[in-house]
C-alpha cells in the first residue's frame, strides 16, 4: 500500500486546525464589513485558506510512497518533561535546585547509561547558569527555595 504518512497526517491536521479557526473565529468574533473589518475577519479567512492548503497537502499523499519516519518518543518525553519541571519550579524552588533537576531529567534520554557524568554535567550547568544569569545579567530570580 502506498501512503506518504507524514504528509497525509500533517495535511489533515492542518485542515482540522484551519476548520477549527474558521468556525471559532466566525462564531466567537465579529466578522464586520470590508470597510470596518471585525476581529474575526482575518482569522476566519486564514482558517479557511489553511483548511484548503491542508487538503492540498494530504490528498496527493494518499497515492504516493513516503519516506519512513521514526519518532523519538523517549527523547521527546525526557526533553519536554525537563522543560515542564523547569517552568513549574523556577519561581517556587529557585534556580539551583530546578536546574539540577531539569538537567538530570533531560539527560535520561542520552544513550550513555552511566550516572557519574550526569551528576557532573548537572553541577556544571547549574554553576554556569548561576554565574551567567544571576551574577552576570543580574536577573531577578530566586536561587534557593523560599527566597
Amino acid at each position: 500500500m502506498k501512503r506518504d504518512i507524514p504528509d497525509l497526517a500533517g495535511g489533515l491536521l492542518l485542515s482540522v486546525i484551519g476548520v477549527f479557526v474558521l468556525v471559532y473565529a466566525s462564531t466567537q468574533y465579529d466578522i464586520g464589513l470590508l470597510r470596518r473589518m471585525g476581529p474575526g475577519f482575518f482569522p476566519a479567512l486564514l482558517g479557511g485558506v489553511l483548511a484548503v492548503l491542508g487538503l492540498m497537502i494530504a490528498l496527493p499523499a494518499i497515492a504516493r510512497k513516503g519516506a519512513p519516519i521514526r519518532i523519538a518518543w523517549k527523547e521527546a518525553l525526557a526533553v519536554l518533561s525537563a522543560i515542564l519541571v523547569f517552568a513549574m519550579g523556577l519561581e517556587r524552588a529557585g534556580l539551583v535546585p530546578v536546574t539540577l533537576a531539569s538537567v538530570l531529567i533531560a539527560s535520561i534520554a542520552a544513550p550513555d547509561r552511566r550516572i557519574g557524568w550526569r551528576l557532573a554535567l548537572a553541577l556544571i550547568v547549574t554553576a554556569l547558569s548561576v554565574v551567567v544569569f544571576h551574577f552576570g545579567l543580574k536577573m531577578t530570580v530566586p536561587l534557593w527555595p523560599g527566597q
Binding site: A106, I124, V125, S129
Partner: peptide, 14 residues
C-alpha cells in the same frame, strides 16, 4: 551532544 543538549535546554528556558 549528550553534554551539550541539557545545557542548551536550560539556557533556552532561562
Amino acid at each position: 551532544f549528550r553534554w551539550l543538549y541539557p545545557a542548551i535546554l536550560i539556557f533556552v528556558c532561562l
